[in-house]
Amino acid sequence: TFELKGKVGKVVKIAEDHYLVESEGDKWIAYSDEKLSLGDRVMVVDVDGLKLKVKRIP
């Protein structure tokens, strides 16, 4: 299986209740415990079905 946990991506869209993150050339629906901005670099900390939980990284 394709393992996304630990992968790095970038926030490419902000929606009302989720983010769109591009990682490894694909776009994924993501959510975070912190507020993210367009262009933020993020790391995948968990995968919930087809949704990614991400956190901001420097």
Rank of each mutant, 00 (worst) to 15 (best):
T1H: 15
T1S: 15
T1Q: 15
F2V: 15
F2N: 15
E3C: 11
E3N: 02
E3Y: 03
E3A: 01
L4A: 13
L4D: 15
L4Y: 04
L4F: 03
K5H: 14
K5D: 15
K5T: 14
K5F: 15
K5Y: 15
K5G: 14
K5I: 15
G6C: 05
K7V: 04
K7R: 13
K7H: 05
K7Y: 04
V8R: 03
V8M: 08
V8Q: 06
V8T: 07
V8I: 14
G9V: 15
G9Q: 02
G9L: 14
G9R: 01
K10V: 07
K10L: 11
V11H: 00
V11I: 07
V11W: 01
V11A: 02
V11P: 00
V12H: 05
V12F: 10
V12Y: 09
V12Q: 05
V12D: 05
K13C: 12
K13P: 00
K13I: 08
K13V: 07
K13A: 09
K13Q: 06
K13N: 08
K13T: 07
K13D: 11
K13S: 09
K13F: 10
I14T: 08
I14Q: 06
I14W: 10
I14Y: 09
I14G: 04
I14H: 06
I14C: 11
A15P: 04
A15Q: 09
A15M: 10
A15R: 12
A15D: 09
E16M: 11
E16T: 11
E16D: 09
D17G: 08
D17I: 11
H18M: 12
H18D: 11
H18L: 12
H18I: 13
H18W: 10
Y19W: 07
Y19C: 10
Y19S: 04
Y19E: 01
Y19A: 07
Y19G: 01
Y19T: 05
Y19F: 07
L20G: 06
L20D: 06
V21C: 06
V21I: 09
V21S: 01
V21T: 03
E22T: 06
E22N: 05
E22M: 06
E22L: 11
S23F: 14
S23T: 13
S23G: 06
S23Q: 05
S23R: 02
S23K: 01
E24Y: 03
E24V: 04
E24W: 03
G25L: 05
G25T: 04
G25R: 03
D26H: 13
D26E: 09
K27W: 06
K27M: 09
K27F: 09
K27R: 08
W28K: 01
W28H: 10
I29M: 12
I29L: 10
I29V: 08
I29Y: 13
I29A: 12
Y31K: 09
Y31H: 07
S32I: 04
S32C: 08
S32R: 07
D33L: 13
D33T: 12
D33Q: 12
E34P: 03
E34T: 06
E34R: 11
K35D: 05
K35F: 07
K35I: 07
K35A: 08
K35T: 09
L36N: 01
L36K: 00
L36P: 02
L36T: 01
S37Y: 13
S37V: 11
S37D: 08
S37E: 10
L38W: 12
L38T: 08
G39Y: 14
G39V: 03
G39R: 11
G39F: 14
D40Q: 13
D40H: 09
D40I: 09
D40Y: 12
D40K: 02
R41D: 13
R41P: 12
R41A: 12
R41C: 14
V42P: 00
V42D: 00
V42L: 02
M43G: 03
M43N: 04
M43S: 05
V44K: 01
V45L: 11
V45Q: 05
V45C: 05
D46S: 04
D46I: 03
V47Y: 05
V47S: 03
V47I: 08
V47L: 13
D48C: 14
D48H: 08
D48V: 13
D48S: 05
D48Y: 14
G49D: 05
G49K: 08
G49S: 07
G49A: 07
L50D: 04
L50W: 14
L50E: 04
L50Q: 09
L50T: 07
L50V: 08
K51D: 04
K51N: 09
K51L: 14
K51Q: 08
L52M: 03
L52F: 03
L52Q: 01
K53N: 06
V54A: 02
V54I: 08
V54N: 00
V54R: 00
K55Q: 13
K55H: 10
R56Y: 07
R56Q: 05
R56V: 04
R56E: 03
I57T: 08
I57F: 12
I57W: 11
P58H: 11
P58G: 08
P58F: 14
P58S: 11
P58C: 14
